[in-house]
Amino acid sequence: MGTLYEDMVAYGGEVFGKEHMETLRECVQCGKCTGGCPSGRNTAFRTRKLFQMALTDMREEIFNSPELWFCSTCYTCYERCPKGVKTTDLIRTIRNLAAKEGHMSVPHRMIGVYVLKTSHAVPLGPAQMELRKAVGLDEMAPTAQKYKDQLEQVQTIFKTTGYDAMIDFDWDTMNLKGMDKGGKK
């Protein structure tokens, strides 16, 4: 494990290419990213500050902060950064690194729960099923949500890759460990 920057370049580089990740160093802290961030408008998330913290290797502070997960990946900052820093992709890389070490926000993990339970991040609900019936389609779309044997295969993939362990999933309750029925941890 090197510095956070080095890990980001190594890990994110495999997906986006090293140069893509190395743009982080060109940041001049102009603040345009935070200025346009829809999320930052309503939360304590400060895009620019996150990058400064990454450059100063404040790994623990970043991994432990809830703000890391408030980015909605809208790509506004990405479009506007004057130095061409690949902002959103860098944030996603940091999130991946954090998740590997067991830091992942509950709402993000809940997406994982839905995938494990239904194979959908956003499962079909009653309203969608009504709509499908109304236009003459089968109520359930032909996905693993409908076909249980396919769902089992999805779940096998996630078990094998260790995703379930990463999000701390409990196969008995089919929910996050330590979560009560009301969804509270």
Partner: peptide, 24 residues
Amino acid sequence: VRAFGKGFEEFYGDVKTEGVFYMR
């Protein structure tokens, strides 16, 4: 960072890419 002249701003970017850290 008063990198105002011809080629200055670009050089400033290169310097940081090389790993020099600018702390305000």
